[in-house]
Each structure stands twice: as C-alpha cells, then as structure tokens.
Amino acid sequence: MITRRNLLGLALVSTVLAAASCGPEPTPEPAPLPTPSGNTTDAETDDEDAIDHEDFAPALTDEAASTEASEHATTTLEAFWDVSKSQDEWYIGLSELMTPAGGAPFEHTLIENILPSTVTGDPEVNFFDEGNTAEVTVPSEHGTWTLILYREGDGWLTESIRFPEEG
C-alpha cells in the first residue's frame, strides 16, 4: 500500500530528476525509493510501534468472553453452512461476520460446493494476545472446525476458518 509519505518521496525524486536534466549543475543523489512496505528507519518504526501499543489493552478472558467467542464462531459456521440463500446473500451474510482479509477467500466460493452441517457439541475457546485473539474449535457432524477470531470493539470478527481434516 502506498502511503502519503511514499507518494511525497516519489514526487521529490521526480522533481530532483527533472531538475537534474535541465541544468549543468550536479545534483545530490536522490534518496532510495521507498519499498511498498514503507521502508521506514528503525527510529520511525519504534515510534510507530509505541503509538500502536498505547491503544492495545488486555481484554477479559472470563466466562462471558468465552461464551461470546463461542457464539460468534457458531454463528459464523451457521452462516457458512446456510446454502438456502442466493450466492450473493450467502457471501454478504458470511462476510459481515469476518474480517475483510478473512472473508475475501470466500467471495468466489460456490455455495453448491458447501456441505451443510450442524454443531454437535460445545465449542472450546483458547485466548491469545492478552485476550484479543481466540481460537475456537467447534465439533460438527462432519468433523471439528477451527476458527480464529479477533476482538473488534466489544465483539468478535472471524479471521479464518479451518475445515475439518478429511479422514
């Protein structure tokens, strides 16, 4: 992703190159072009990391948080298994429960290729990242599904769905 800082750097390099071609004076060497990842210095990275981590706070990992994560994982799978909707309705319903990156792989999934299932037991929740990430395993009639959830405000979004291993 090109940031405003990267665009300004590219504009500066273009200006320097244009000026160099117009006059006989030697010009300073242009700064290296930024990489798509931002090409930041260590000092800039440390400052940015400090800012990002100031907003990070541990989340509760109590029974209520576990129940909320279990319910979200179950709701995500039920949306995934609900093939009674049109293709577009199915994807919209599923993607609303997922992060943008998590929902993207399902955009081109054909619902006729989905084998509907039902939850057959209680989901198991394990918290990570001070309670802001949860791994939820959900037993179904076709095997155990594993979902990774990220806390979004007061709720959860699904980042990934791992299908049961075929046996």
Rank of each mutant, 00 (worst) to 15 (best):
N6G: 09
L7E: 10
L10G: 06
A11D: 05
A11K: 02
S14L: 13
S14P: 00
A18G: 08
A18W: 13
P24G: 14
E25W: 11
T27P: 01
T27R: 07
T27L: 15
P28Y: 05
P30L: 13
A31C: 02
L33R: 03
N39M: 08
T41S: 12
E44V: 00
D47L: 09
E48C: 01
I51H: 08
D52E: 12
D52V: 05
D55Q: 03
F56R: 07
P58Y: 02
A64C: 00
T67L: 04
E68F: 03
E68L: 11
S70P: 01
H72A: 10
T74C: 03
T75E: 13
K85C: 03
K85H: 07
S86H: 03
D88F: 07
W90I: 09
G93R: 03
L94V: 03
E96G: 13
M98L: 10
T99C: 06
P100Y: 08
G102S: 09
A104E: 15
E107T: 06
E107Y: 13
T109W: 15
T109Y: 15
I111P: 02
E112D: 15
L115T: 13
L115H: 08
T118K: 05
T118Q: 06
T118E: 14
T120R: 07
G121F: 10
G121P: 02
D122T: 10
P123Y: 11
V125F: 05
D129I: 00
T133W: 02
A134V: 08
E135P: 01
V136M: 04
H142C: 01
T144C: 04
W145A: 12
W145T: 00
L147M: 09
L147C: 10
L149E: 12
R151S: 07
E152A: 15
E152D: 15
G153C: 01
D154L: 14
W156S: 00
L157G: 00
T158H: 06
R162T: 14
P164A: 04
P164T: 03
E166W: 08
